[in-house]
Simulated assay, not measured.
Amino acid sequence: MENIKRLDLQHCNPQKRMKNFGWLIVCFFVVSTAQAQEKLVALGKAPALYVKHKVAGGEVLSGIASHYGTTSIQLAKFNGIKVATLLKKGIILKIPLTRNNLAQGQSASFNEPVYHTVAKGDNLFHISQSFNNVNIQLLRDWNGLKRDVIRDGQLLIVGYIKGGKRNEVAAAPAVTAPVDAPPASVNTSTPAPVAKKNQQPPVTEPKKESVEVKNEAPQQQTANADIKYDPKPGDEGYFALQFANHPETATQQFHSGDAGIFKTISGWTDRKFYVLMNDVPPGTIVRITSTSNKSICAKVLDKLVETKGGAGLLLRMSNAAAVALDMTDGKSTVSVTYFE
């Protein structure tokens, strides 16, 4: 009986209950902090602004760099490491923020947001000046601000990373063997079948034409001359390494618009994706990102031939590329990044 009474007294002890309540508060704070760390928060001061990336298992420098709109050379230099460094799981990399990979225009909102933590004395004008003179009205729109009143510690969106989300960063292929020759031709002549009742309408195909893939001179760095690629479902495809290793002096370009599809036998097993697109030189490697944040890299074959139902399209991609992006329902909106 004495033991039972002591146990009851212990449970009724107010100090004991307060201690338990304190632990609950601590746990809630830890969980909240962990969730906050998932966001890309800008650190440092201009022009050396950066965000942090925690390396997951199997990630390599070129794959991480390509998803943040930078290069493996720039990323290695910024972190004081070698390009060939093997990254250990859990280490933190600093991702530099520049005008090339920080989108701050009207069409930027479908990428991953970058935040600024409001400090004492901050105002929207000061924040705009610190982040490439981003338009103050865009700051209001992105953050749902009805007034120019902000508070210390508040997270404000100041731009968007040009690329896919971090949990979709794929390991880049190893570099050792010669490049396989590209397919000799792309057949776009197969007409679309007539849709039956209760079936989705087919994608309008281009007019009968044969687009020849020429053996062009290499446009990428020497490292791209020897590529051994092991196709893996969910990666960005055969041309991803060439996109990541673009010339250091190249300027990043960014477009968005509607995309259609053309048929070709290429890409289903080798994941060599192709695209027809105007205003981009044939042979250019582009990254195409869907609204679901899936992305693939593709080579521009030729100009986009306007066909019935295709007016206003930004591009047409091979049907294998469309399947990789989960975009098999006809016209869809995409964003395109490339370097020139």
Rank of each mutant, 00 (worst) to 15 (best):
K303L: 08
K88F: 11
L145I: 06
L301S: 01
G144I: 04
Y238N: 06
V179E: 05
A42D: 08
S128Y: 06
E168I: 00
D148Y: 05
A192I: 03
K214V: 11
G57T: 05
W142C: 10
A250W: 10
Q199E: 02
Q129K: 14
Q129A: 08
A184M: 14
P178V: 03
K19A: 14
K165A: 08
N167I: 12
Q10D: 08
L315R: 12
G330F: 09
D329T: 14
L301D: 01
P281E: 14
W23T: 08
K5V: 05
A250L: 06
L43I: 00
G312S: 02
F110W: 09
A321F: 09
P201M: 12
V26E: 12
V114Q: 06
K308E: 09
N133Y: 12
H53I: 05
V51Y: 05
K331D: 00
F29Q: 05
L325R: 11
T33E: 00
P231R: 00
T269A: 01
G58L: 03
A48L: 11
F125E: 14
A172K: 03
I227W: 09
N278I: 01
N101L: 04
L315G: 07
A46S: 14
E168D: 13
V83L: 07
L138R: 15
Y115F: 15
F21S: 14
A192D: 08
S210I: 13
F21Y: 12
L276M: 15
L9H: 02
K263I: 03
Q252M: 15
R271H: 14
N79C: 07
V186G: 02
T190E: 15
G153H: 01
N278C: 02
D180H: 00
P218C: 07
S189V: 06
K294I: 11
